[in-house]
């Protein structure tokens, strides 16, 4: 793996193809566990650990698993790692284990992990698959942290448990509630689309203003 390849893959996973904000996968934990930044970090890292391990194993087994039963095989592999992460967290990080609750087990059915297994790890060598797991996992963690930071600051007036209102504003409870989760995510994705739109518009404008076809390759 080349070094610049690693960083460009990392950037793609976190920004260009962010699993939550751009690919719109993994909605359940994104909506449910983002009331507090600490939960978001815990969930993101747990999912990243599972994603890296499952990507590695699925990539190693990619020639062995028969095509017809691949999804079932992936799910078994993923749920094995989820159970491992669950037991480790129960032993060493009991508070986090309790606050994540059932969503820790639900990593099994997180579409991001299955999507990466199907779309990437089953077709690529182990090392790139690990990098892809790290990149996608960090992208997921990043999305969770952004969501949680917004919701914790506005909804509870704290960040990582520290009070930051200084008496200036009253926390808006609504944002910390389920309804707020949907609306916050909607506004964030709208912002992402806004950026995408303006980039596309600029590209189109540039293409139209250059008459020579050689200068602009047909990128679209």
């Amino acid at each position: 793996m080349k070094k610049d390849g690693f960083f460009s893959q990392l950037k793609r996973g976190i920004l260009d193809e962010n699993p939550v904000f751009v690919q719109l996968l993994g909605m359940c934990p994104t909506l449910a566990l983002t009331t507090l930044v600490s939960n978001a970090i815990g969930m993101g890292l747990a999912a990243t650990a599972v994603l890296v391990c499952s990507n590695l194993l699925i990539s190693l087994l990619r020639h062995i698993i028969p095509k017809q039963v691949r999804i079932a095989a992936y799910i078994v592999i993923i749920s094995g790692f989820v159970t491992a992460v669950e037991l480790i967290m129960k032993a060493y990080l009991f508070d986090l284990y309790q606050s994540l609750g059932i969503f820790l087990s639900l990593i099994v059915v997180n579409c991001i992990i299955l999507a990466r297994a199907e779309a990437y790890a089953s077709k690529n060598k182990p090392l790139p698959s690990i990098v892809d797991g790290i990149a996608t996992g960090l992208g997921f963690t990043f999305a969770l942290i952004v969501m949680a930071a917004i919701r914790e600051v506005i909804g509870s007036g704290t960040i990582l448990g520290y009070d930051i209102t200084f008496g200036v504003y009253e926390p808006a409870m609504m944002i910390a509630q389920p309804a707020g989760a949907f609306i916050t995510l909607g506004i964030i994705i709208a912002a992402v689309q806004k950026i995408k739109n303006s980039v596309e518009d600029k590209k189109r404008l540039k293409r139209l203003s250059h008459v020579e076809p050689k200068e602009r390759g047909d990128k679209e």
Partner: peptide, 18 residues
């Protein structure tokens, strides 16, 4: 334009959740 598609769906879901 930015809200078209998925974002407006999410906001509507938020209102229903409320």
């Amino acid at each position: 334009r930015a809200f078209r598609g998925f974002p407006i769906t999410l906001v509507a879901a938020g209102l229903l959740a409320m």
